[in-house]
Structure formats: C-alpha cells, structure tokens
Nucleic acid binder design. Structure first.
Length: 631
DNA sequence: GAGTTTGAAACT
DNA sequence: CAGTTTCAAACTC
C-alpha cells in the first residue's frame, strides 16, 4: 500500500533514518505547542547541535480507533538537525529526559497532527489494526511503498513487577522503532544496554528485512535466543508481533506493501518479559502467520550499499529507521552526552530503549542511498540533504566543517577503529577513504561497537569535541585537554590547538609554545596566512572576471561571425600578438627587478601590463587591420 | 611520492 | 601516572 501523499512525499525521503518516539495518551492536551507543524523550544531545549545536516523528516502517524473520548491525537515525530528546534513537546508526553539527552546529538521536531475525532481511520489506506494486549489500535503508516515500520507498543501496565496486571497501558506509549526497510542500520550499543540493544538491533536487522510473502511460519527464532517467537496478529496481514524477552514492550512490525503487490505485508510484535520473567504472549489464539521471516543474510542482497562513483543503482525499496526513546533512561542518561555517534541504547534492565543516531551517522548512510533512491522513487532532492554532516571537528565551526571537504583517512593498521583514525574519532564512517582493512563501516558494526566501547572505557569523553568553551574570562574556544607539543612550538598543524586555530591555554602542557596572543612568531604566521588567503581570493576573483570577460567577448563577437562582419579571437590573437604580449610582460618583470620591487609589486606590475595588452588587443580586434602590440 | 617529523593515542 | 610504543597526519625534500 502506498499511502504517501504527494505533499508528504516531499517531506519524506525515506533515506533519512529518524529515531522517533510517539506517545499516545488517552487524555492528550488540547493544544500542543508543536501543533500545526511548528516546533517550539521547550524549557528543556537541548543544546543546539552543530551540524549542517538537513534531515528531512519522515512521518508516521498513529491513530487509535478507541472511542472518541479515548481517541488519541496522532503525533508525527521526526528528527531534524535544525538547531532551532527542540526535542520535547510538552503535549506529547514524550519523556523529555531521554529525548533531551539525545538531542545533544539530535534535534527533534515533534509535529502533532490532530486526528479528527470522527475520522474513520479504518478505511484509510495503509491503516492496520493491531491488538496487543487485547487492546485494539489503528496504526496508519504513512510511508513509501515497501517500507516496514516497527512500532514499540506499550506492554500493558509497564511497571516493573506489575506482572499480570498489564492489561492496559495508560498512557499508551508507542515508539516507532524503525521506519522503512532500511537494513543497513545497526546501531552500536554501549554500556548496560548492550544486550538489549543487541536484541533490538538484531530485531531490526533481521526481522525487518526478512519479509517475504506467502510462506507461513508459526514460530521464528531470530537473532539468537533473545528472539523466540513471532506472534502474527489475526487482524491484519501486515502486522507481526515479535516477542522480545527482556523488553517490556511489544514490538509490532508493519510492512507496507510493495508497489504492485498485496502480499508483501507483514508485521511483528514482540513482548518483553523482563519484568515478569515470562514472555508475554499476545493474542496467541489468533496466531496466523501470513508472512514468513527469512534470515537476514538473504536480505543483505538488497541492503543499500554506498554509492559508488560509477553510479550504482539501488533497487531495494526497503528501508530501516531507528529507535527513539519514549521514556527516560535514568541509569544511563548521565552518560548520554558521552556517547559516540552511532551509539544505540535499547530496552533492557527495566529501561525503555532508544537509539542514538547522530545526524551525521544518518547522513552518511543516507548519502549512500539517497541519490539513487530519490531518483528511483521520484522524490525531490533537497540540496541540503546531501551535505556531509559531522560533529564539530577540531574545533572548527559548523560552517567551517561544512565548507571543508571530508578528509579521507589513510589508516593502515588501526582498521579505522581507533582514535588515530579521524573518521572514527569524528564518529564518521569511512567513506571514499584510502584506508586498508577498514572496519569503520556497517559491515563491521560489531567490531565498531566494541571499539567504541573500548574507547569510551579508556576515556568517557573520547568522542566529545576537543574544542570546547573555555572558562570564564578565557577564550571562547579552547582545547579541552590541551596539547603536549614539544618541538613544533605549537605553530604547526601537529598541534591540535593550532590546527583548530585557537591559542594554547593554561590547559596545555606544551614546551616552547609560541601559540599565544603576543607571540611574534604567531603574528607573523597569521599575517602570512592572511596574505595568502587574500591572494588566493584575488586570484580567484581575477580568474572569474577574466573568464567572464572572455565569455563576454566571445558572445559579442559571435553575432559578427554569423553576420560575416566579425572575427573570432584566434584570428587576431596571432602568434605574433602573443609573442609581443609576452615580451611586454617580460619587460615589466625586468623593470620590476631593476627597481628592486618586492615580488608582490612585480606581480602586480606584470598583471597590469597584461591588462593593458589585452585592452589593446581587444580594441584592435574591432579594426580591420592587424593589431599591434607596443609596450 | 618517499622519507621524516611530530604528537596523540594506545599500551605497559 | 609515567614511560614507551604505535599510529597516522603533517611536513620536507
């Protein structure tokens, strides 16, 4: 089923992986600050993320078909990196803690789309009924054809130890775990949540991309012992329930039909037994598997691969999205700001799970698929979306980083899984690098996750920007650890402070530092650098102007050619004219040398002479006789 | 492009 | 925590 409206289509390039959280409350606030598609910063507004990614949101709408009094407002959530946006919307009941923490690396827009109370969502295309815990919900998937959506439904009475009293969930927490069949996303796990995160990750990686039609399966074990059973729902052929011991949520997978096929729909719902020590089975009496689950490996064939320079065409329509927290994770929250890009935290130990997927992680992934998918799907291609995003790098501002082309690494021995590798250190995947034996990619996510964990074990702030705000009264930007240079005088790019274009501070332990405010060496270097920059700019401007003039000249002479009355430049810029011009320029050079002018002045004199020569040539071009050049 | 220098990261 | 080794980037020729 393809239920993407044209206008939504514009907003929903499904290459973007969003982490989302949706909470449906029986008694939602009358008005949300985020209503009508606008987001407003909350009191807990996160720190604006320094990234240049423009993440276009994908929208998932969830509607309950409960009576009007219980009808929830449909919320659409999305993530963007727009720093002006906030992560929390008070009316959504999204727990601000987790989201707020996440937003250190994400910015989230929550757009509330109020469902009309009387709307009959059951008739909407793309709507699926699911009945976890005996409750009936309508799930409307707004997405591209062929997408799968995993929802994390509330385990009934989701309090630890509540056991059998989990018949209802109020408020009802829905979490969109994945959107689209994206299969190349396997977030990294850290800390306590590793095990559970692994479950979810595996769930996503294997369940979501293993949908094939018409092969009944009663019980499927995926991702190891954590995943025991899939409980298909009788109410819909495109919903699967997946049982996930260790999670207190039901996981429901919805798979919208691939275009032209009504059989490729499946959903899964998983339950968590972390509190009850027993897997919770929902609607077991209605087990009816209409869609088989096949091993993830088989689907890897369609996992989007990084686009090659040769313009590889991707044919897959499956996409996968990420997990987002709907509730706080108090135990691990304090560490969230230390998480490296690509870190995933997932359900476990009584916590709601979520995934941290920094925008650049997303963008790097989307880069690999966006162009082709956009072209194949007919999506418009926002220019900003293809921008490589990254965290502040070496203290460079976002704009600096954005203007800088991504620097490929050349790692040989580290497998790009140590901080030696700039890509890894910046939380980026290696892409178009010159590295050998690279493990900093999706194909080696396990190793990468371990490496990230190891780095964090050594230094919890390993992935934090090194350049941060200084103390009161100090420079705005300073190296968090300071440098330890001994031989470079901190005036070469070996020095991290100098490289970041900041001066050394009291934090530094450098020897023979010359990178301080009053340093004459530093001033000289700065002047040279400024002069070089100005020169480059001037040269660029001159080239542009010259090109423009040449183009203009050509344009003006073209009609003359067609009319037979003019001449092309080559007809009057003869060999003799060129030689004469060169002689003039050489003479200027000699003159400059003779009067001992500095190089810059000499260059200017030569250029000016060249300009005069050109003018003479141009003026002569309009005459019938041959141009003459006289210095 | 090869070789050297450098300092952060990793290791002991 | 200090000393040493490893590593990749910066730099030089």
């Amino acid at each position: 089923m393809d239920v993407v409206s044209p206008e939504l289509n514009i907003l929903l390039p499904d290459e973007i992986m969003d982490t989302e959280a949706i909470v449906m409350d029986d008694d939602p606030p009358a008005e949300s600050p985020a209503a009508s598609g606008q987001s407003q910063p909350s009191d807990d507004a996160p720190i604006p993320m320094e990234t240049d990614v423009l993440a276009v949101p994908e929208i998932v709408s969830l509607c309950s078909d409960a009576p009007p009094t219980q009808r929830t407002q449909a919320l659409t959530t999305s993530i963007t990196t727009d720093s002006t946006l906030c992560s929390t919307t008070s009316a959504t009941h999204l727990t601000s803690g987790g989201l707020q923490k996440l937003s250190a690396n994400h910015q989230i827009i929550l757009n509330k789309v109020a469902s009309s109370p009387g709307a009959d969502t059951t008739r909407s295309p793309g709507t699926t009924t699911i009945t976890p815990g005996g409750q009936k919900f309508m799930v409307t998937a707004i997405g591209k054809s062929g997408q799968s959506i995993v929802l994390q439904l509330p385990h009934t009475g989701s309090k630890p130890g509540s056991g059998q009293g989990e018949a209802k969930a109020n408020p009802q927490h829905f979490k969109v775990l994945t959107i689209g069949g994206r299969t190349d996303l396997k977030p990294v796990m850290v800390g306590q949540a590793v095990s559970s995160a692994s479950q979810i990750s595996t769930l996503q990686a294997q369940q979501l991309k293993t949908v094939q039609p018409m092969k009944p399966v009663q019980t499927v074990t995926v991702g190891g012992p954590q995943f025991k059973t899939i409980f298909p729902l009788s109410t819909s052929s495109n919903v699967q329930q997946i049982q996930v011991p260790g999670s207190r949520f039901h996981y429901v997978r919805l798979v919208t039909a691939t275009t032209g096929s009504s059989t490729g729909q499946a959903g899964s719902h998983c339950t968590n037994s972390s509190m009850t020590a027993k897997p919770m089975v929902v609607n077991t009496a209605q087990v009816r598997m209409s869609v088989p689950i096949i091993p993830a490996q088989t689907m890897k064939q369609v996992v989007p691969k990084p686009l090659t320079s040769s313009g590889q065409v991707l044919t897959t329509q499956t996409q996968q999205r990420l997990i987002m927290p709907a509730t706080p994770l108090p135990q691990i929250q304090p560490n969230l700001t230390n998480l490296p890009p690509g870190t995933m935290l997932a359900p476990g130990s009584g916590n709601m799970g979520y995934t941290v997927l920094p925008a650049h992680y997303v963008t790097q992934l989307q880069q690999s698929a966006y162009v082709t998918l956009a072209s194949s799907s007919g999506f418009p291609t926002p220019t900003g979306i293809q921008t490589q995003a990254r965290l502040p790098l070496n203290g460079l501002s976002t704009s600096d980083a954005a203007s800088r082309p991504r620097k490929p690494c050349n790692c040989n021995k580290s497998q790009c899984l140590k901080l030696y590798c700039d890509c890894f250190a910046n939380g980026e995947f290696c892409q178009s690098c010159n590295c050998t034996n690279c493990f900093n990619n999706l194909e080696h996510e396990t190793e990468r996750a371990k490496a990230i964990k190891a780095c964090l074990d050594r230094n919890p702030e390993a992935f934090k920007p090194k350049i941060g705000k200084g103390k009161e009264g100090e420079s705005d930007r300073r190296h968090s650890k300071g440098c330890n240079c001994k031989r470079s005088g901190c005036l070469k790019n070996y020095c991290e402070c100098y490289e970041a274009k900041i001066m050394c501070s009291s934090t530094c332990k450098c020897v023979g530092c010359k990178n301080f405010e009053e340093s004459p060496e530093r001033k000289t270097l700065m002047h040279l650098a400024d002069a070089a920059e100005v020169r480059v700019q001037q040269q660029t401007a001159a080239k542009t102007k010259l090109s423009s003039q040449i183009s203009d000249l050509f344009t003006r002479t073209t009609p003359a050619i067609t009319s037979g009355g003019g001449r092309m430049p080559f007809t009057f810029v003869t060999k003799e004219v060129a030689e004469a011009t060169c002689e003039c320029l050489l003479e200027q050079a000699e003159q400059a040398e003779l009067i001992q002018q500095p190089q810059a002045t000499a260059e200017r004199m030569i250029l000016e002479e060249f300009g005069r020569c050109l003018m003479r040539i141009i003026s002569s071009a309009g005459k019938t006789d041959c141009p003459s050049i006289n210095c």
